[in-house]
């Protein structure tokens, strides 16, 4: 939330909480900004200009129908294939034969991926270490994919997604059809109507944090569980155990990563380092055991390792050396 000065239009536009206010998205942000504007009447013009830029003009799109696009594509595809054949005929016979075999193999593969009318194409997104990706799914839902994570879905059933790693979801409510949205992990399925929540599948468990709305969890052991805002549940199907459950968790600690930082409050250094290992794909060695229990408080960036290391060093008063993919932590 607002912690800096807002002087130029860019300051507002680049602020996620401000964007939430402009779109009337998240209640906490809406309250915050309504109050902020009341206290800063001199910024009112700038604020509303920024709001207009975010909302923009809404156009009625005169888009060609799906059938039209498909038939146009069919025409083009035929043309391409006809052109290819001509090119192949000009080449030497043995080469042509080879292409023929390759083409038939290709055809077999593509039939596997593509049925003739339904084409259940699989769409996959993946992030590397130290990378965060903002996605908009076909149904309009927004997903922020954390580092070293992946998500996929099939085009013909685009409200069911498979997740490994960590992601934050803002699911669009389909009021007309009441269609559900599903997140599937190794441990559980999350059943959603329209809401925002975080799912984290690292370390052989799935942890779900609900920010807004309501969701149902369908654990792999067959039981179901309803969640209300602020709830946090961590479940592992490996030993069929709920490993952690909290009634009320401050959303900053569970979802701040999507705004570019991880926030710690009095967290033992060893746990904080684990998060950094997950984010940047590193291993860590503690030279002094006493360092592990030091408590740290503050935020660290998730896409800039050198600043992240410096922030931890300062907050925990330790020395961290990076050797290739290893962090060595010792007393100062």
């Amino acid at each position: 939330m607002a912690k800096k000065n807002y002087n130029t239009i860019e300051d507002f536009l680049s602020d996620e909480s401000f964007n939430n206010w402009a779109k009337a998205n998240r209640l906490t942000d809406v309250d915050f900004w309504d109050e902020w504007i009341a206290y800063n009447p001199n910024k009112k013009d700038l604020v509303y200009e920024a709001k207009d830029i975010i909302l923009g003009v809404q156009f009625k799109l005169n888009e060609p129908s799906k059938e039209k696009i498909n038939s146009e594509w069919a025409l083009l595809e035929n043309k391409i294939k006809a052109n290819n054949l001509e090119v192949q005929k000009k080449q030497s016979p043995s080469y042509f034969k080879l292409i023929g075999i390759a083409a038939s193999i290709l055809l077999l593969i593509s039939v596997g991926l593509y049925t003739f009318n339904g084409n259940p194409e699989k769409i996959t997104y993946k992030t590397a270490y130290g990378e965060v990706l903002n996605l908009k799914l076909m149904d309009g839902s927004l997903v922020t994919l954390n580092a070293n994570s992946s998500i996929y879905y099939y085009k013909n059933d685009n409200r069911k997604v498979w997740l490994t790693g960590e992601a934050f979801f803002q699911v669009d409510k389909k009021t007309t059809t009441n269609a559900k949205f599903w997140v599937v992990t190794d441990d559980l399925n999350v059943e959603v109507y329209g809401t925002s929540f975080n799912v984290d599948t690292k370390h052989q468990k799935t942890a779900v944090f609900l920010e807004e709305g309501s969701i149902w969890l369908e654990l792999k052991n067959g039981t179901t569980q309803k969640m209300t805002p602020g709830n946090f549940i961590s479940y592992s199907s490996v030993n069929n155990l709920i490993t952690e459950q909290k009634e009320k968790v401050d959303s900053r600690f569970k979802t701040s990563w999507k705004d570019g930082s991880i926030i710690f409050e009095k967290l033992p250094l060893v746990e904080a380092i684990q998060k950094i290992q997950d984010t940047y794909g590193l291993t860590a060695i503690f030279k002094d055991e006493t360092c592990k229990t030091k408590l740290i408080t503050g935020g660290i960036p998730i896409t800039n390792l050198s600043i992240c290391i410096k922030a931890i060093e300062k907050s925990a008063n330790v020395k961290i050396t990076k050797l290739k993919n290893q962090l060595i932590i010792q007393k100062k």
């Binding site: 779109k23 509303y48 709001k51 207009d52 909302l55 923009g56 003009v57 809404q58 156009f59 009625k60 005169n62």
Partner: peptide, 18 residues
């Protein structure tokens, strides 16, 4: 005019002369 949605989220763009 037909391209502009009658329902605009922003007050500014609700103007009929937009």
């Amino acid at each position: 005019p037909e391209e502009i949605l009658t329902h605009q989220e922003s007050e500014t763009f609700k103007n009929k002369n937009i």
